[in-house]
């Protein structure tokens, strides 16, 4: 399963080494890692609706998997940004995060994923209790909205792609509002 998540990574590295990423490979890598993070994050939102529609409880493990996959790619995205794009120029990076809203929002999306990744184990669910764990993990909704906004604002003019991502995310979020799980007795 993890092979699926990691698969794009060696492809990107190979493309980088073979000089297949165009004239500005750092920019390209930054975009592609970001795309994968957002794709997995949005895919993780699809699991709950699918479970409710099909009743397949085993899907819950895939939700964790997809969430962690998104986190993995978000780390990749952030690494490209700090190492390749800015080469640890912390002064510029700090300014970038504080002054430029699309970076602020992107960092927010990432930071919110950290506690979720840290509490993704069964043991954490037990320790926190289902209700509290669920409440904590609803942060993913904020993260995905921030991620979509980050993508939207990062684009210069042609917002087709970010709108597609945001559209899918909105449908998956709306599902949760429209289709509440039946109250437990």
């Amino acid at each position: 399963m993890w092979a699926l998540v990691i698969l794009p990574a060696p492809m990107l590295v190979a493309q980088l080494l073979l000089d297949q990423l165009g004239a500005d490979p750092i920019d390209k890598l930054e975009r592609l890692t970001g795309h994968w993070a957002l794709r997995f994050l949005i895919a993780s939102l699809a699991v709950t609706p699918l479970m409710r529609l099909t009743g397949w409880g085993w899907l819950v493990a895939q939700r964790r998997f997809l969430g962690l996959a998104a986190f993995f790619w978000a780390i990749g995205h952030l690494s490209v940004y700090t190492v390749l794009d800015w080469f640890f120029d912390w002064q510029e990076i700090t300014k970038d995060i504080l002054k430029h809203l699309y970076i602020t929002v992107g960092m927010t999306a990432f930071v919110l994923m950290v506690p979720l990744a840290l509490t993704s184990t069964k043991a954490s669910i037990k320790r926190l209790g289902g209700v509290r764990w669920n409440r904590l993990h609803s942060l993913v909704y904020v993260s995905v909205i921030a991620g979509c906004l980050h993508f939207f604002w990062a684009v210069k003019k042609d917002v087709t792609e970010p709108l597609i991502y945001a559209g899918i995310a909105m449908v998956l979020l709306a599902f949760r509002v429209v289709w509440q799980p039946p109250a437990r007795r």
Binding site: A23, D24, I26, D27, L84, W86, F87, D89, E92, K95, D96, K99, H100, L101, Y102, W153, A154
Partner: peptide, 19 residues
């Protein structure tokens, strides 16, 4: 003078690593 969404202080010369 920054672009409202990003800084204009530095640039990446195509083919170079450091800005």
């Amino acid at each position: 003078v920054d672009h409202p969404r990003w800084s204009q202080a530095k640039e990446r010369r195509i083919g170079e690593f450091l800005k």
